[in-house]
């Protein structure tokens, strides 16, 4: 795999002195989906804006297909499509005219066939003659994606693509992104919906306070940091966890009717068999048991809080 986007020591300090990016270095492989995960104000949008030319960096560099985003901005920007976080569309404009404008801005000749293909790809063909203000929020977001794709970019930035979108539309958007990946588009999406990163991304980069904390394949991150929880429902309530079970660090539910045991799936011994024996030995009767894999959200919270503790 080759890196299509190379970011090196990228810095951005605003006039007021606020440092939004503190030397970000990141490689994005061709054809992958990378989720840029971070809390509000972490620098996600600034990073995208700096690569796309909307914000001027104060240090470092970024190249797209080997073209520097500042020195060789024409070639670099021609490779990029950007879907912004806000729904920035002229309300009275006609949907298909929006796409013709976007294509023209990127130096491409007028091509109704490409516009038709992109509109159909995003299920907007029936709405092509509508004015933007007549569309629903989800449709407007699709128009933004269509505008970003109509000049046939190789890299697509999706800044919070499902912010404020209902659950059904969010799933719909995930399918659209999967289709784009199948078409060979490299996608960088920012999100603070962790399930979104988990569902779509090949890799996850965690950013906080303008610094990349880690970049890992999603599956590796889940495997390495993922923990499982075993929840044991009890027939009779307990007032406290028996002393004999202290080594398992169990958590007792408030009503005393459930015990929770956390274990590492990668450890040699999970300790489950021993726990079951110990429960039986102590006369605790089980009603039900269930396990739950910790989500990327739990991992993210752990990561950020670890960083805060060490800072």
């Amino acid at each position: 795999m080759t890196a299509i986007l190379k970011i090196r020591d990228l810095e951005k300090t605003y006039d007021g002195g606020f440092q939004a990016l503190k030397g970000v270095t990141l490689d994005i492989e061709e054809g992958e989906i990378l989720a840029l995960l971070g809390p509000n104000g972490a620098g996600k949008t600034t990073l995208i804006s700096t690569v796309c030319g909307i914000t001027v960096p104060t240090g470092g560099s970024a190249t797209v297909s080997g073209h520097d985003v500042q020195r060789d901005y024409r070639k670099a920007r021609a490779e990029i499509g950007l879907v912004p976080q806000e729904i920035n569309l002229e309300p009275f404009s006609i949907v298909e005219n929006n796409l013709h404008l976007s294509r023209g801005l990127f130096g491409k000749r007028r091509d109704p066939a490409t516009v038709e293909r992109v509109l159909k790809q995003l299920s907007l063909w029936d709405k092509r003659k509508n004015r933007v203000h007549e569309l629903s929020g989800g449709m407007k977001r699709r128009v933004l994606i269509a505008k970003a794709l109509v000049h046939e970019p190789r890299v697509l930035f999706l800044d919070e693509p499902t912010a404020g979108v209902d659950v059904a539309l969010r799933k719909d958007m995930w399918e659209t992104v999967a289709q784009l990946k199948a078409d060979g588009v490299t996608i960088i999406l920012t999100t603070h919906y962790i399930e979104e990163a988990e569902a779509m991304a090949d890799r996850v980069a965690v950013i906080r306070k303008g610094e990349i904390l880690m970049v890992e394949p999603t599956s590796e991150l889940m495997r390495r940091l993922g923990r499982k929880e075993l929840r044991i429902d009890l027939r009779e309530p307990l007032s406290e966890v028996p002393q004999a079970l202290s080594e398992y660090e169990l958590e007792l539910a408030e009503d005393g009717l459930a015990l929770t045991y956390s274990y590492d799936t990668q450890a040699d011994r999970t300790g489950i068999a021993g726990l079951m024996r110990a429960l039986s030995d102590n006369g605790i009767i089980l009603k039900d048991i269930q396990t739950r894999q910790s989500s990327l959200e739990d991992i993210f919270v752990d990561l950020v809080s670890e960083e805060e503790e060490s800072a």
Partner: peptide, 13 residues
Amino acid sequence: FIGTVFEVLSAPV
């Protein structure tokens, strides 16, 4: 004002 200027700023112009 409506934010559409981002497109012109991020285009190769």
